[in-house]
Design a protein around this nucleic acid. Sequence first.
DNA 1: TAATTTTAGTTTAACTATAAACAGTTCATA
DNA 2: TATGAACTGTTTATAGTTAAACTAAAATTA
Lengths: 150, 150
Amino acid sequence: MGTQYKGSAREIGALNAYIKLMRSSQSVSERIRSHKTVTGLNSSQFGALEALYHLGSLPQKTISEKLLVSKSNVVGIVDALEKLGFVKRQQNSDDRRFTNVSITEEGRKYMERTLPDHVNAIAEEFSCLTASEQEQLAKLCRKLGLKEQA
Amino acid sequence: MGTQYKGSAREIGALNAYIKLMRSSQSVSERIRSHKTVTGLNSSQFGALEALYHLGSLPQKTISEKLLVSKSNVVGIVDALEKLGFVKRQQNSDDRRFTNVSITEEGRKYMERTLPDHVNAIAEEFSCLTASEQEQLAKLCRKLGLKEQA
DNA sequence: TAATTTTAGTTTAACTATAAACAGTTCATA
DNA sequence: TATGAACTGTTTATAGTTAAACTAAAATTA
């Protein structure tokens, strides 16, 4: 495990953290995903629906930014959710470039039916860390992720 | 930022850590990737070549496990690297089910040419964390990732 | 006001990844 | 030894993702 790279201490430390971060996130998301295949939605679709469930109506642009996926991808995601009857599109009358996407009653019911299991799987996954460790991890990841504003 | 989910403290803490972990890893890998598009290899190909550079010859099965990608994906990755002349396949004579993949001289040169920039990009990316924070992060991620043995 | 630029969403083409079925090799065991 | 199980790698079919070109709408500016 770890890196074989011969470099400065600064580089070794960063590489090690990088590798561990990538591997853990990949493992965790893989395991969460496998818990969730039952629900029929893939993780992007689930993530989009979850955002709409919590935040109400959003333009596709915002969904794209929140989920860190391309706008062309959002088209497909919303198409799929719309076909399932979980969301609906509505052109914004103030600025007709925007398409507001909102969750339907059916989508809301779906979320209420599946979210508990999803949350439980995550809690399960993170149960190997104490509450304080989870907080630490969140703080460090946040600091790392913040750089993206640059 | 964070979760809107109403649940137990245990669930909230895990959800928060989960979201931060996913977002940060996605942001970081995205930014590293964009640094590296110049090199012509995608990150899987680069990762495989890097493993071969450090570890010598490996069967595809091992590459699959190390990189956490499917064995069918490894076929394509090795195909691409082979076409570039960076690796070569050789059937293992002890057990002919195995195909050993090894890095060529050209692949090694490529690695020596590109690795420093890659490592530097990572060090840059993690420079918002102190050495001790990087170590903390690595430790927590490792603990989280270890669960996968289960 | 007219022309230009910018923005949101869509379409298309290329790429990446996986699962499932398959072929060849080795191992187990009867 | 022979049959069946397990394993490595390949092929095929399919799904998810993105970038680039495009359409329509709004903002800018000349």
